[in-house]
């Protein structure tokens, strides 16, 4: 009998408290996430509490501001400040908090805030003929620039620089934020975040951003060669295989040494590579599709973006050039 009432009470209490604490959430998110850049104005970001930084942006409308915060901008704002697991509402609360802290002349942010929801209310408040023309009405001259910015924002996203590359703040994320692990799973939070382990390891430009071969060479790590015996030593074979390749691309030097430090002969021979000179047809297409070298390179070992790690032996250009000269 009382259960529905209790639920209603709890629910409404929760709803009310959510509203009341929206400001608190905004402050919280700001102090944990946004503060990294917005405190000092890193990468040209509008600084916290600086009205001059915020005025032109707020003039462009809160909707545009939310959009930039949620989806990022080509100028450097990462989507949700790089914390993609944040709820949209929390991000917006943080934006509101920062805008409020900028203490802009009252009418502006208030009028703008209402914009996305109540177009009519906006018209009344603005009371200017231009308001009818543009959705984001210019009130003061500087807002014209902001309007242009806001309207081109979506188009600029499509052409944003290095759109397909992962920005630095999205690499090596801790498990609850990495997009694969379920943050609702208790075990996820017990897992080690990669960066806490990678700290002292030599860096590379791709993959985990760790140079694993160097890590062993520098004795930063000493992974076991045997499951039970920590003292087992790998059987290392130091033999380079040179593969001549077409065109002007440097020839490939395949080092058995680095591979046998990690692997056993049987891992590659004979299933993936026939141990005989000239017996293996290898192409970049096959590698990209996960065959030959691509069985590991592009999955766990460094990916094919690191061309010169393999294509490392310069061709004798004199020899290459002679036939061309003779042809003339």
């Amino acid at each position: 009998m009382n259960i529905p009432k209790t639920i209603a009470l709890l629910a409404s209490l929760l709803a009310i408290s959510t509203q009341i604490h929206a400001d608190a959430v905004g402050k919280d998110v700001y102090s944990k996430v946004c503060v990294t850049c917005h405190a000092t104005g890193l990468a040209g970001s509008p600084r916290f509490g600086q009205a001059a930084d915020w005025a032109p942006r707020v003039a462009g409308g809160m909707a545009g501001l939310y959009q930039s915060a949620l989806n990022g901008t080509p100028k450097g704002m990462p989507a949700k400040g790089g914390h993609i697991t944040l709820a949209d509402a929390d991000v917006k609360a943080a934006v509101d908090y920062m805008v409020a802290a900028a203490k802009l002349p009252k009418s502006e942010p208030e009028a703008r805030k209402e914009e996305p929801k109540k177009a009519e209310a906006k018209k009344e408040e603005v009371k200017k003929p231009e308001a009818k023309v543009a959705v984001i009405a210019p009130v003061v001259p500087p807002s014209e620039a902001a309007t242009a910015l806001a309207t081109t924002a979506s188009a600029a996203d499509a052409n944003s620089f290095n759109r397909l590359l992962k920005p630095a703040n999205k690499r090596n994320l801790p498990p609850p934020e990495d997009g694969i692990h379920d943050p609702a799973n208790d075990g996820t939070h017990a897992l080690q975040p990669p960066l806490t382990a990678f700290g002292s390891l030599p860096k590379s430009l791709a993959g985990n951003r760790v140079n694993w071969v160097e890590a062993i060479a520098q004795k930063k790590i000493n992974p076991r060669y045997d499951r039970n015996d920590p003292k087992a030593e790998p059987i290392v074979m130091d033999l380079n295989i040179v593969r001549e390749v077409k065109g002007s691309m440097p020839d490939v030097v395949y080092p058995h040494k680095q591979h046998t430090e990690w692997l056993d002969c049987s891992n590659c021979h004979p299933a993936i590579f026939i141990p005989q000179k000239g017996a293996n047809q290898i192409s970049m297409a096959a590698i990209l599709l996960g065959e030959k070298c691509g069985v590991c390179h592009g999955k766990v070992a460094f990916p094919v973006s690191e061309c010169r790690n393999c294509h490392s032996k310069k061709k004798d250009m004199a020899k290459v050039a002679i036939p061309a000269e003779a042809g003339k």
């Binding site: 990669p194 992974p223 692997l263 056993d264 891992n267 590991c296 766990v300």
Partner: peptide, 18 residues
């Protein structure tokens, strides 16, 4: 997590022995 395991064991342990 490959990274976690390769810090402790070489590829050979799992991919050849196991």
């Amino acid at each position: 997590p490959h990274w976690f395991h390769r810090m402790r064991f070489r590829c050979k342990v799992c991919h050849a022995d196991l």
